[in-house]
């Protein structure tokens, strides 16, 4: 803006004294403040310099661009009071799935599953100890018929985010392991699409609707049918 120079004395003086490069951790480390702050990032001088970046003058383009942005419709908003639904998104094998937060109890570190005698088949993998409570651990991959070994394709990932997920149902809690938990995702009901009739995916029997998320289609599982199926399988 052309009038910025006259109105704000500090605007002219936002040139940064980069003391962290001269006497700080990127310089010769001779700054006496390093004794107390250990690293420049803890130092109030560094903080003030960072704040000073916000005292740079605004360009007319910036203001006009934002004016146009806020003049438009609010992104993704149809009705301000419309209720948001929330799901937890997780991955098993190649499939990204979502389950309503209402049945989610806990996401825990993966731990050893103790197998049960005579229950080597089926969906029950054994029991796990989650903070002192013994829970039945089931295999979601088997229940939903997902190819668990598809994860091998993701070997390029340096980190594994395997987690144990605990969900609640009417008669107790139950655990299953997933390969990755993305976290809670909130969406408006209009973000949902119906499950395509031709879908060949194994999980489709339990999939209620599809949710577009980060360029993927995530199947939202029907918690009632899922919990019923679990109850039948472990009875």
């Amino acid at each position: 803006m052309s009038d910025a120079s006259g109105t704000f004395a500090a605007a002219a003086a936002w040139e940064i004294d980069d003391c962290w490069r001269r006497i700080g951790v990127q310089g010769d480390r001779s700054c006496p403040e390093l004794e107390t702050h250990l690293h420049c990032r803890n130092c109030p001088t560094f903080e003030d310099a960072a704040r000073g970046l916000l005292d740079r003058p605004l360009s007319a383009d910036y203001r006009a661009e934002w004016a146009a942005h806020f003049a438009g419709e609010k992104a993704g908003e149809t009705d301000g009071d419309e209720a948001l639904a929330a799901v937890v998104i997780f991955r098993i094998g190649e499939e990204w799935l979502a389950l309503s937060t209402s049945v989610f109890e806990e996401v825990a570190e993966p731990r050893r599953v103790h197998s049960l005698p005579h229950r080597r088949n089926g969906i029950v993998r054994g029991i796990v100890n989650v903070r002192g409570e013994l829970l039945v651990c089931i295999s979601f991959a088997t229940l939903l018929g997902i190819d668990k070994d598809a994860e091998v394709e993701r070997r390029d990932r340096s980190l594994h985010f395997e987690r144990l997920v605990v969900i609640g149902r009417a008669n107790g809690r139950i655990a299953f392991s997933v390969h990755e938990v993305h976290g809670i995702h909130r969406f408006r009901p209009n973000a949902l699409t119906a499950v395509p009739g031709t879908v060949g995916q194994a999980a489709s029997a339990f999939t209620k609707t599809m949710l577009a998320w980060q360029g993927r289609s995530v199947g939202i599982l029907d918690e009632t049918r899922l919990l019923d199926a679990i109850d039948r399988s472990i009875a």
Partner: peptide, 10 residues
């Protein structure tokens, strides 16, 4: 009595 400065932090 003076307008706010046209800077990013305004």
């Amino acid at each position: 009595g003076r307008p706010s400065a046209a800077v990013l932090s305004t």
